[in-house]
Simulated assay, not measured.
Amino acid sequence: MYKHILVAIDGSETSEHAFDAALQLAHESGAQLQPLYVVDNPLMAYDAFGYDPTIPRDAFVEEGQRLMADALARMKHENVAGTPRMVDVAPIGEDISERIRITANEFNADLLVLGTHGRRGFKRLFLGSVAERVVRSACCPVLLVPGRQTQTTLVESAKPGHADVAAAMVETPR
């Protein structure tokens, strides 16, 4: 049974589906849930005339606060324990996936839940995948939840004893 579930949220439809799955798992297993919003510090271009790096960062923080308040309200409604958390990516040498992994270790997460867009081929190569990088470096099981509705129940496949894999990815036909 899971005791600490960390779910990454970013305001996308995909992360909403991941949060729904994590909330249901936490409710059913009595686990503590930590929704995590990662503030990605924008590239600092100090030599650009009129560039103020605090403007995009402040927008990220404002969005994160809104998402955390919504997550906390939904957790209280479902009687799920836990506290949403907002963290910043370190300015040098760290990306969102690394910050998720570090935070999961600090939280002693025994399950990570992430949304995935399920991109393939050139799009995945060009855009990269935070979820893929988290899966490759995670020290606990990772449940990848697609943004689109699936015909199977993701929560059932993620229950302890139902899957002995480090990552589960469900995709539907396009």
Rank of each mutant, 00 (worst) to 15 (best):
Y2P: 00
K3G: 14
H4W: 05
H4Y: 10
L6I: 06
A8L: 07
A8H: 10
A8I: 03
I9K: 04
I9E: 01
D10I: 04
D10A: 07
G11D: 07
S12I: 09
S12W: 08
E13I: 06
T14K: 01
T14D: 06
E16F: 03
E16Q: 13
H17K: 15
A18K: 04
F19Q: 00
D20S: 15
A22H: 09
L23P: 06
Q24M: 13
A26R: 09
A26G: 13
H27A: 13
E28P: 07
E28Q: 15
E28A: 15
S29A: 13
G30N: 07
Q32A: 13
Q32D: 15
L33D: 08
L33W: 10
Q34E: 15
Q34V: 12
P35T: 05
P35F: 05
L36E: 00
L36N: 02
Y37R: 03
V38N: 01
V38E: 02
V38R: 00
V39R: 01
D40Y: 05
D40L: 07
N41S: 08
N41L: 12
N41I: 13
P42Q: 03
L43N: 07
L43V: 14
L43Y: 10
M44F: 13
M44I: 14
M44W: 11
M44A: 12
A45L: 15
A45S: 09
